[in-house]
């Protein structure tokens, strides 16, 4: 039988899903400070949902977005207002908020019809600044620049008290998001996206309605970001406009780029890599290095980020996922690999 994924080995996917659910039990036994690691993994999960959506937009449709933190912000604030001030249940907010953010994505999609490449990046960047300012201006609902406290969520009667419960909630949605994104990529929609990325003229000539599909790409990407926003608000319990800076938007692009732009697994890998780097390896590395020289706390991380990003762009444009594919092909052909193909 020929299916959608006939050229892929799907046997390991159930094992991976089980491993994801068993992972917290593993680290609970392994380390004393497992709660901290769970929190980091939760944040990584939220970012994965967003970067998968961003990859659909930037990697598959070729529309650059430097304002995805704004979508996250809209999602987080909308959910906080809907749940705490309007009084909707959390489950309903999980459905309504992504739709609202998707509509915002739709709106920012309008200029995308005329603007390309770098100009679109700048427009979305401007959108990010404008959203941040508007959140401060609407201080009656959002608390202005002082920030907003968000209540804890409860999901169908189960109240999400701590990071332990939250892990299972978030990673269920992460798995769903990855599956949905992969279905989209393999469908007619995804093929239309890729056709637009490769050549707008050719896509148009083959009967793809550019305006419609670009709008859909922004809408879907906005929905993913809105979903991440809801989870973000109810995970961090406190949101303020400082969280959704332009640098966060750039971080998201870095995650997609380091993972490998144009592949869903790449976005997942890149996000995990960057979040774990930021929170675990760089602090360790910095402690080791600070015996020899004086280092500022925040700046060193940012510096390493910039360096990793630049090196990836110059030497490994396909990202981590591309590296993995190359390695796999190398081992498959092992004794007979022509050397020059893998440089």
């Amino acid at each position: 039988m020929k299916g959608r994924y006939q050229d892929e080995n799907l046997k390991w996917i159930p094992i991976l899903i089980i491993a994801i659910y068993l992972f917290p039990f593993l680290i609970k036994n392994a380390t004393f400070s497992y709660k901290y690691y769970l929190y980091i993994l939760n944040m990584a999960g939220i970012y994965i949902i967003l970067t998968v959506g961003l990859d659909l937009l930037s990697g598959f449709t070729g529309l650059m977005s430097l304002g995805h933190a704004a979508f996250l912000a809209i999602g987080a604030y909308t959910s906080a207002i809907l749940v705490d001030q309007v009084g909707l249940p959390f489950e309903l907010s999980l459905i309504i908020t992504p739709l609202i953010v998707g509509i915002f994505g739709f709106l920012i999609g309008f200029p995308a019809l005329r603007i390309k490449g770098m100009y679109l990046g700048l427009t979305t960047m401007g959108f990010g600044f404008i959203v941040k300012r508007l959140i401060i201006a609407l201080r009656e609902w959002t608390g202005g620049s002082a920030g907003l406290q968000v209540s804890k969520a409860s999901f169908f009667g189960i109240s999400i008290k701590n990071d332990w419960d939250n892990y299972f909630l978030i990673y269920t949605f992460v798995i769903l998001a990855v599956i949905i994104a992969r279905r989209i990529v393999q469908s007619k929609l995804g093929r239309a996206f890729m056709a637009i990325r490769d050549s707008e003229q050719a896509a148009q000539a083959s009967g793809i309605h550019l305006a419609k599909y670009k709008m859909i790409a922004f809408f879907i990407s906005g929905m993913f970001a809105g979903f991440a926003g809801v989870l973000f608000a109810h995970t961090s319990h406190f949101i303020s406009t400082d969280h959704f800076d332009i640098s966060l938007s750039i971080f998201f692009i870095v995650m997609v780029l380091v993972g490998g732009i144009g592949s869903i697994y790449g976005a997942v890998l890149g996000t995990l890599f960057i979040v774990l780097m930021e929170n675990m390896f760089i602090p360790l590395f910095k402690d080791g290095l600070s015996q020899y020289m004086h280092i500022e706390a925040g700046e060193f991380q940012v510096f390493i980020f910039g360096l990793i990003m630049l090196l990836f762009i110059i030497f490994q444009p396909q990202g981590l996922y591309g590296m993995w594919l190359k390695m796999r092909i190398y081992w498959k052909l092992f004794p007979f690999n022509p050397r020059k193909r893998f440089t």
Partner: peptide
Amino acid sequence: FSIIMATISLAIILRSLTAM
């Protein structure tokens, strides 16, 4: 896309290096 990201990463490097 890659060039924009490369200059952005250069910007990040310069800013953090200056601050350091």
